[in-house]
Amino acid sequence: MSGIRRPKSRIWRPSTDLVLCWIGLLTLLGLTVTLSYQPLASFNFPVAMTIAAIKAGLVAAIFMELRHRSGVVCAFAAAGFFWLAILLWLGLMDFLTRV
């Protein structure tokens, strides 16, 4: 469509990155629900947690804008998950190592 641009009447649109991220998240949601019904034996749980981690990564990188942030902000963001990793690692140590 050609003609004079009329900024007043244009509709604001979010960036393509945000839209793609949203579509990706909904696709992963559909995928994880579908896979949970498949007979993958002991792999169902790791698959569900891996897809959850990918979704969380997308939210953190794109919606929370960590991909555009400096090292200091990323370090603060990672701190909570670092302590969580210690909590889960030590908390589950017995189960992970007992034979």
């Binding site: 629900v33 949970s36 019904y37 498949q38 007979p39 169902n44 569900a48 947690m49 897809i51 969380a56």
Partner: peptide
């Protein structure tokens, strides 16, 4: 919620 969803709703669906 992404993690709660995976822990609460998805277990046991294939059996």
């Amino acid at each position: 919620w992404i993690f709660l969803f995976a822990l609460i709703y998805l277990p046991g669906r294939n059996s």
